[in-house]
Design a binder for these strands. Structure first.
Lengths: 344, 344
DNA sequence: GTACTTACCCAAATCGATTTGTGCAAATCG
DNA sequence: CGATTTGCACAAATCGATTTGGGTAAGTAC
């Protein structure tokens, strides 16, 4: 059971059973033609000496250990993987892990694999899922070079149509929230976007600008880094409300849920009543938005569904079943809450 | 660049450079004695033909691809990896992933690796972290058999001291919450525990029972499965409040944060005032508990710290630096909120 | 009795890297 | 000038499995 602390190999089994490694392999995998008694003998001996096949050796031949990598680009630009109050990424990761398991893969979360100190395992994957790549993303370059298949959630804004990708939902969301604001009688809508150069931000801004243009309205677009949290609320209000250069907004769409929370809180402190004087909504909703008071209208981005779809797509890609590069993600649902619900 | 769609190997580089694979390997890794010009030649050629060493082949020799596995047992007993409103596991996973990356490993989340359909990669890990193993956990048996090193967070209740483990914090928490209730004048405290057979539940119940005994109080202990959410609140109250067989509690400690939320909501519906008539606190706090109204007293389990410590311990184990089997986790902090704050 | 199956088992090649030990030429030493 | 060292490169072994292509003996056919 314990010959020098070394893990028993197929050779050890063969020696113990008095037969060749070939037959052991075939017996254990039911491949060749092996006598029933031999199979039983091998199984018994294998169990006795505690044999476990090496996944690496096996993987070397089959060139697959059924491992998927997930890169969440916004997390790389943050300085932490754990932005407080943001559960989107975790839910995505969890859902993707489960979906992967259901397809016989496991999934690991990787920080930028193009970094030089990236662990060996990051390159032993069968395929990658890249969430919201940035413009000309070096991660995609690495994967192309290493001939590792991948799909993206949201396209590389500089390389549309080049790789299999799910559409971002920024345009949809922007359209929906602007209509919602309009229905409530908002006349002047501001947008607060993030600073990452990804498809979601890009799409949303474009949709907003063309909406403004269609209405002959002057755009009121400010940016705050995704790394910053609720505490930029006041700074956003200051920029939007305190200038005499333009008409003040009566509705604000913050793409980041935490920014929305910050704005609502800052408004409360300033004595601006939400929703009566100012409508506020978030793009990517957080748990906070649901339970804060007032609760904040935001989109349910359905990270679980995205995680699952992404895994299914990448598995299809691996199995040669993926026929299109344009994959479609479900349209996020606007969840109306107190911050855009007229009290009378 | 593209000889038949096959990934270039070290042999291809050698052939292209007109030298032997040995020298290529040594040149790229700076190992043997290789002329400077040869090194440069090799590097140039390797880049030209897009050579990326195979992590699997390398791993086969070094028997490590620097990959860690994380098994969260409570998730296996749930029927989903994504219990709504529970962010503890996700935060733990995220923190562990980051910590792993900092040590040059990557980390994957695995469902029970003792299942027969477990992906190959689950057995290609260098080591495992097992969170809250159950009694005589088969996962631990598998790891022992496969000679895969591991640590646990919370001991296997049936095998204390046998494997390197962080202590569970159930006893600490129970002590703290009971003292807190006592200070507030509670005279009759009930406990609602989960049903998983892990150290945390075990410890907490034991601590509660001995506290009751020390005070000559009859224990008031009920259980609800961790899989059930807020909706069991009423059923818990029914069991605790509607019996004439014992004195009704004036404080309830729900080990699961969602159960605490459910109890508070059910109390509101019944017209029982929290905290004035009934104190409620949660063991493992969720985001909901922070933002609900009334907000709910609960422990901050500090999953980030646990995730990080676990990774550091397992890395130490791999490097032979782990000298003890009794690892200590930080004591969770009780966060007092509305549900146990006397209004007068 | 020779030819042909059938049933079983195995030696060797293979996957793609690293490592060990050897060989050879030029440089240095005594 | 012969002996030894040094610098450089490489053939072969190795990691632990799977797969290919035999090979042998017993059984069957005619």
């Amino acid at each position: 059971m314990n010959p020098g602390e070394r893990r028993p190999t197929i050779k050890d089994v063969a020696a113990a059973a008095g037969i060749s490694p070939t037959t052991v392999s075939q017996a254990l995998n039911g491949k060749g033609v092996v006598r029933k008694e031999t199979v039983e003998l091998v199984q018994r001996v294998a169990k006795e000496i505690g044999y476990q096949p090496s996944a690496l050796a096996r993987g070397l031949r089959s060139s697959s250990i059924r491992l998927l990598g997930l890169v969440i680009r916004p997390l790389d630009s943050l300085d932490t993987f754990l932005p407080p109050g943001v559960d989107f990424f975790m839910r995505l990761t969890g859902a993707a892990s489960v979906a992967a398991l259901e397809h016989g893969y496991s999934l690991m979360l990787i920080a930028d694999p193009s970094r030089p100190d990236t662990p060996l395992s990051a390159l032993a994957t069968d395929a990658y899922i890249v969430f919201e790549p940035i413009e000309n993303d070096p991660v995609l370059d690495l994967l192309v070079r290493g001939q590792i298949p991948f799909i993206t959630l949201g396209e590389d804004p500089a390389r549309p149509g080049q790789f299999p990708a799910f559409n971002a939902s920024g345009a949809w969301q922007t359209d929906d929230i602007l209509s919602h604001f309009e229905e409530l009688g908002a006349r002047r809508v501001a947008m607060v976007s993030g600073t990452d150069l990804n498809a979601w931000n890009h799409e949303s801004r474009t949709a907003y600008l063309s909406w403004c243009e269609a209405r002959g309205q002057q755009p009121l677009l400010v940016s705050r880094s995704e790394t910053e949290g609720e505490d930029v609320g006041e700074s956003i209000l200051a920029e939007l409300m305190d200038s005499s250069a333009f008409e003040q907004p009566d509705a604000i769409y913050c793409m980041t849920g935490r920014h929305a929370s910050g704005v609502v809180e800052a408004a409360r402190i300033r004595g601006i009543r939400v929703p009566d004087e100012l409508l506020v909504a978030g793009g990517s909703g957080t748990t906070q938005n649901e339970t804060s008071s007032p609760s904040i209208t935001a989109f349910d981005m359905q990270p679980e569904i995205h995680g699952q779809l992404a895994v299914e797509a990448v598995v299809a890609l691996l199995e040669g079943r993926l026929t299109t590069r344009r994959l479609s993600a479900p349209r996020p649902k606007l969840v109306v809450r107190d911050s855009t619900r007229r009290t009378r």
